[in-house]
Design a protein around this nucleic acid. Structure first.
Lengths: 347, 347
DNA sequence: TTGTACGCGTTATCAC
DNA sequence: GTGATAACGCGTACAA
C-alpha cells in the first residue's frame, strides 16, 4: 500500500540509499554495472523520486509561480504559454493563480507561493507592484513584473512601451484626418490603462487637438464593456469619428455596437485596438491594432528569472518592449461627412 | 541571511518548536496567552511556515495539476479558470502544464506531477487517456479527465455530450433546408473531434442524406486552419451551403474565408461553431454555436477531485454535460440559388 | 566505489 | 499544556 521510497529500492538492491540516489542521478561516482542494476530495479519497482523531499534538502523546489488577473483572457494565456514553455524546458513546474485584478488576492497569492517556497514569481498586470519592494526584503524570492513596473524598487520588470505605442496608434488616426478621437479604457486602474491613456493624450497634445472629456470612457477590458462604452459615445451630440480602445476585445465590442448603430467601419468610424490577439485578424473588418509579442514576453520573464537564479547578482533590469502598430482595415481617412445609415435610410 | 524557521521562532519564544507549530495552527491544546504571544512573535519575525516540509510529513501537498493541450486557447483558459477558482477556495494551489496535444509530453507531464506528489491531476483534452488505467495503479493519484473519457478505466471524467450536441447542430442546418453540409474538423485526433464528426454523420444518416467525403476536411482548431479549410471547400465544383465547424475559432476563420470569397453569411452559406466563446457573440455575423459551460466544467472537475479526497471510495463517475445550441445570425434557411457575388458581378 | 551519519522544516506520538 | 523525540524522503559530507 505504501509508496515505494528510495530506501525500499536500496533494500531490494542490497545497497545503501545514498547509492541509489547517486545511481539515479547519473553520478559518475557509482560503478556502471551497479548503477545499471539499481536503475532497472527502480524502474520495475515503479520508484519515482519524491521531489518534495528533495526540495526540502536542496532548498530548491524547481517551481515558479505566475499570478495573473484572469486566466480566461487569451492575452494572459499566451503570456503564460511562453512562460510555461521555457520553464518546462528548464525543469521548472509552474503554479498559476488568478487574482481577478483584486489587490488583496494578489498579495495573498504571493504570500502563499512564498510558503510554497517557489524559486521565483512572475506577476502579470500587477495592481500592487509598488508594495513588493518592502515584501521582497523578507520574501527573498525573485519577482518579475510583467505589464507593470515601478522602476525604483528592487524587482525586475518587462512591459510593452504603452505610452509610445498608444501615441503611435492615435497619431495614425490623426494622420488619417481624424479630430474627434475617443479613448475606451479599462476600469480596474491597471497601469497599462493609465499609460495608454497618457499616450492618447500626448498624441492629441502634439497635434494641438483638445482633450474632450466626453470622449474618454471606460469599458472593462472585454467585448461587452467595449460595446456599452461605444453606445454611450455614439449617443453623443457629436460622436467621435475614431475610437482608440484599451485592447482588442474592447474593440471587438466597439465594432459590434457600431454595426448595430447602422454605421460602418472604417467608412463612418475608425477603430484601433491593442494587443493583436488572433481574433484581431479575423474580425470584420480586420482590426488595426498594436501588436504585443505576448508569448515572447512570457518567455523573457522566465529568462529574467533564470538569470536571477544563476547569477546571484541583484542587477535589476526593466525591459521596455516597443509595440508595433499593425494597420489593417478598421481605420480609414476621415470622410467629409460621416453619414449614419439611420438618418439617410439606406442612403 | 538564512530564512527564519519554526525553530527560530521557538527559540525566541522560549518554547519548543512543536508548541509553535500547534500555536500557529490554532490547536486548542496550547494556552491562549502563549498562543497569542507566539503568534505575534512569528508575525514580527516574518515567519512563514514551509509548506514543502509540511507536505513531506503529512503526505498531503495541497497541490493539484492541470495538464492542457494549449494555454493560448481561451477555451482552456476558462476551463482552467473554473478549476483554479474552486481549488484556491479550498486551499489548493494549481500547477499547469502545456502538452501541445503531444502524447509524449502529456505522459511526461503526468509523471512529473506524480514526482511532485500533487494530490490530484486534471487532464484536459487528453490524447492518451486510455493509458492512464495501468498508470493509475502505481501512481495512486486521482486523475480526472476533462473532454475525453474511457469508461472502462479507473478514473473519472467529465465531457460535453459531443455526439448529441453535434447532431443537434447539424440537425438545425438540415431543418433550415441545407443538404450539402460540410464538417471542418481538427487534426490532432482528439476524441472530441471524433465524436463531433460522429454526431455530424449521424444527423446526416437520420435525414437520409449521403456523407460526401469531399465535404469533410480538417482545420487545426484555430482560425487560420478554418480559413484554409473553407477555401478548399469553396473551390469545390459544388460547394457546401452550410459549414459545421469543430470549434468557434475554426468558424471564425471560415467566416473570414467566405467574406474574401465575396459570399455572405448566412445568405449564401450558413456557419455553425462549437464552444460559444466570447467572440462568437461578437463575430460578424454573431455565430450560431454549441455552448459549453467551460468554467462550470472546470469547477466540476475540481469538485470531483475534492470528492475523491474526502471519501476514499473509488466510485468512478463519468459526467456527460449536455451542450446547448445557441442560434444566432450565422445560420439561415437555404435560399433557392446561392449566388456568388463573383459570378453575378454585384448581382 | 560505497556506506554512515546527519540535516532540511515540519507534524505526530508519546511522555511528563 | 508542554516538551522530547521520532518520523517524512531525500541529498551531502565524510569516512571507509
Amino acid at each position: 500500500m505504501k509508496r515505494v521510497s528510495i530506501k525500499d529500492v536500496a533494500k531490494a538492491a542490497r545497497v545503501s540509499h545514498p547509492t541509489v540516489s547517486r545511481a539515479l542521478r547519473n553520478s559518475p561516482l557509482v560503478k556502471a554495472e551497479t548503477s545499471e542494476r539499481i536503475r532497472r530495479l527502480a524502474e520495475t519497482m515503479g520508484y519515482r523520486p519524491n521531489v518534495v523531499a528533495r526540495g526540502l534538502v536542496t532548498c530548491k523546489t524547481w517551481t515558479i509561480a505566475a499570478v495573473v488577473t484572469t486566466l480566461a483572457d487569451p492575452f494572459n494565456g499566451e503570456l503564460l504559454s511562453g512562460l510555461e514553455e521555457l520553464a518546462t524546458d528548464r525543469g521548472y513546474s509552474v503554479f498559476v493563480a488568478n487574482c481577478n485584478a483584486d489587490p488583496d488576492r494578489e498579495i495573498k497569492a504571493v504570500r502563499l507561493f512564498q510558503e510554497r517556497r517557489v524559486d521565483g514569481i512572475v506577476v502579470m498586470c500587477s495592481r500592487v507592484g509598488v508594495l513588493y519592494g518592502p515584501m521582497l526584503r523578507e520574501l527573498r524570492i525573485p519577482i518579475i513584473l510583467v505589464n507593470s513596473y515601478y522602476p525604483n524598487e528592487f524587482f525586475n520588470s518587462i512591459v510593452i512601451n504603452n505610452p509610445d505605442a498608444s501615441r503611435q496608434a492615435v497619431q495614425h488616426l490623426i494622420d488619417l484626418g481624424h479630430r474627434r478621437i475617443a479613448y475606451i479604457g479599462d476600469q480596474y486602474g491597471l497601469q497599462s490603462d493609465t499609460e495608454r491613456f497618457a499616450g492618447y493624450r500626448e498624441a492629441l497634445e502634439l497635434a494641438g487637438l483638445p482633450l474632450s472629456p466626453e470622449l474618454v470612457v471606460n469599458g472593462n477590458g472585454k467585448a461587452d464593456g467595449g460595446q456599452q462604452a461605444t453606445e454611450r459615445l455614439l449617443a453623443l451630440p457629436t460622436p467621435p469619428t475614431a475610437l482608440f480602445c484599451y485592447n482588442d476585445q474592447t474593440a471587438l465590442g466597439a465594432l459590434s455596437a457600431i454595426r448595430h448603430h447602422g454605421l460602418r467601419v472604417p467608412d463612418d468610424i475608425s477603430v484601433v485596438g491593442f494587443d493583436d490577439l488572433e481574433v484581431a485578424s479575423y474580425a470584420h473588418p480586420p482590426l488595426t491594432t498594436v501588436r504585443q509579442p505576448r508569448k515572447l514576453m512570457g518567455r523573457m520573464a522566465m529568462e529574467m528569472l533564470l538569470n536571477l537564479f544563476s547569477s546571484r547578482s541583484t542587477d535589476q533590469s526593466h525591459l521596455k518592449i516597443p509595440g508595433e502598430l499593425i494597420v489593417r482595415e478598421s481605420t480609414a481617412p476621415l470622410t467629409a461627412a460621416p453619414k449614419s445609415r439611420k438618418n439617410t435610410k439606406r442612403g
